[in-house]
Amino acid sequence: MSTAAEGAGENRSATPEDLPASRTEPDGSAVVRLLSYNVRSLRDDTEALARVIRACAPDVVCVQEAPRFFRWRKHAARLARAADLVYVTGGATATGPMILSSLRAHVERSEDVLLPHTPGLHRRGLATAVLRFGPSARLAVISCHLSLVEKERYAQAGMVLDRLAAMDVPAGVVAGDLNDEPDGRAFSRLAGELRDGWAVRPWGEENTSPSREPRKRIDAVLATGAVEVLGCGVPAGLPGVTGADLRAATDHLPVLAALRVPPAAG
């Protein structure tokens, strides 16, 4: 871990229960719980997966490796129902990334974006949405799953930043499976422009892959400067989240973040 991350770790929440709950403040700002989760095309224990998601009580879930083949919409809808959420966008139309939300979120707009395809490699895409919480707290959200190939992954990180800027919402978040560790070029490119949630306000546990013996942090939540990160990390030990469910649900561990989104100016 870098020196900066070590210093941030001194402020880690003492207990899993310390992560703030969702709420809208009197000034119009909103505390939003966002979960990023690679679900491995629902090939594992979907009941365990749904239990983990529900226990995290998210307002937004950025999914990677959502179902994208035969009857993918049916499988996506089933996951949303099991997790007490609704489908927003993505899945096969974004080649895997998907966004789900609670009924608290008002969807202002959404778009699935296909990234340039390198022949012989898996096609990548982005699920994007602008969500509003309360009267005016707006959050731009991108769910992404970057390439396994370093050169392509670095280029895709730049495309993610360009897309977030084009969404033209000061409060924005990128969440996903980066297939890169914090000292990698793609992760560093994102963290150079955005705030890495774990580095800013570490909470819970750090490493996300593989779920049975996590050794690497390749999944992350990164936010623009307009977003206050209140806590971010793997929700191990959160009430209702068991080690058995985390291991059974999929091959990645989720990242849960509590974010304070400001009200619209004016």
Rank of each mutant, 00 (worst) to 15 (best):
D251M: 02
D180I: 02
I218G: 00
G240M: 00
R33Q: 13
V63T: 01
E111Q: 14
V227C: 12
E181H: 12
A77D: 15
L121G: 13
H122D: 13
R40W: 14
A264E: 09
L42Y: 10
K151R: 12
V61R: 03
P262V: 06
E65T: 05
P67H: 08
A77T: 08
M1R: 15
G9M: 10
T242Y: 00
N179I: 03
S211N: 03
R109W: 10
V173D: 03
G125C: 04
D44Q: 13
A223T: 15
P263W: 12
I53A: 01
V160L: 15
T224P: 00
C144R: 07
A66Y: 01
R132V: 10
L115V: 08
A166V: 07
L146C: 10
F187M: 04
P214W: 09
R123S: 11
R132C: 12
V130H: 04
A76N: 06
A191M: 03
I53L: 00
S211M: 05
T208C: 06
A105K: 08
G158I: 08
R73M: 13
P214G: 05
A76L: 09
G120W: 00
C56T: 07
P263M: 12
I142M: 02
A220H: 04
L190M: 12
R138W: 00
I99E: 07
L164V: 13
A83K: 03
E47F: 06
T46Y: 03
M98Y: 06
S211P: 07
A236I: 04
G90F: 06
A257V: 01
D44V: 09
R201V: 01
S102A: 13
D27Q: 12
D177G: 14
T118C: 07
L42A: 09
A166R: 14
L246S: 13
R33D: 11
R215T: 13
L146D: 08
W198F: 15
R23G: 11
A249G: 03
V86G: 14
A186K: 04
D183S: 11
V174D: 00
D27A: 14
D27H: 15
V31W: 05
D196M: 02
S2V: 05
G28V: 09
L222G: 00
L161A: 08
S147K: 10
P26T: 03
T3F: 12
P119Y: 06
E6H: 09
P119D: 07
P254Q: 01
R247P: 08
E65R: 05
V173T: 05
R68F: 09
R212E: 12
G91T: 04
T242L: 01
M1N: 13
G7T: 09
L190W: 07
S136H: 15
R51N: 00
R189S: 14
D27L: 14
V107S: 00
A248T: 08
D177Y: 14
